[in-house]
């Protein structure tokens, strides 16, 4: 069976109570669902013998600025077995800016979640080491948020004395 029909079908069988929003745009399959199921779904996609999404190629986020659910966390995963790419999405609101970490599923997610935390300020629950990735640890802002000015906040990054 075609993976594009198999994956949503298997997910619906395994998680009957979860609402999966499946879209297929430009030959790329995207599945969106509630953030509280992210770890279970990822675990299933990785461990299922017919799917085997063994590689987590990227985790990032989108800042929609004015939307009600301000952020969307995006997971790009890859099945080596089928040479198939899948995108998972989960909405996160600014008021409750947290999502469960999938670093227990893929170890590669550790640094990718740190980067997402650094750039967007989304906290990952149960992450083993949630420190900033690029910016100095004492930095207080999250540069890829839409309300962060392009040239930064003056004085927020210290320079050596001349």
């Amino acid at each position: 069976m075609d993976l594009k029909t198999l994956i949503p079908q298997k997910l619906k069988e395994k998680f009957p109570t979860v609402d999966f929003e499946v879209s297929d745009y430009r030959d790329e399959l995207t599945i969106k669902f509630d953030k509280k199921y992210i770890v279970e779904v990822c675990k299933f996609l990785k461990s299922d013998s017919e799917l085997e999404f063994s590689l987590c190629s990227d985790i990032t986020a989108i800042d929609w600025a004015t939307r009600k659910n301000r952020f969307t966390v995006v997971y790009n995963i890859f099945s080596m077995k089928h040479n198939f790419r899948l995108r998972l999405k989960a909405d996160v609101d600014e008021g409750d800016c947290k999502i469960d970490s999938v670093s227990s599923v893929w170890r590669a997610a550790n640094w990718q979640e740190r980067e997402t935390y650094d750039m967007y300020g989304i906290k990952f629950n149960n992450h083993p080491d949630l420190r900033r990735m690029y910016m100095p640890e004492e930095f207080e802002y999250h540069p890829l948020r839409k309300d962060f000015p392009l040239m930064g906040i003056p004085g927020s990054l210290p320079l050596p004395k001349k």
Binding site: I153, G155, S156
Partner: peptide, 12 residues
């Protein structure tokens, strides 16, 4: 050797 302390963040 003068180096800023990284944990000091000045705010304007």
């Amino acid at each position: 050797i003068n180096l800023p302390e990284l944990n000091v963040i000045q705010k304007n």
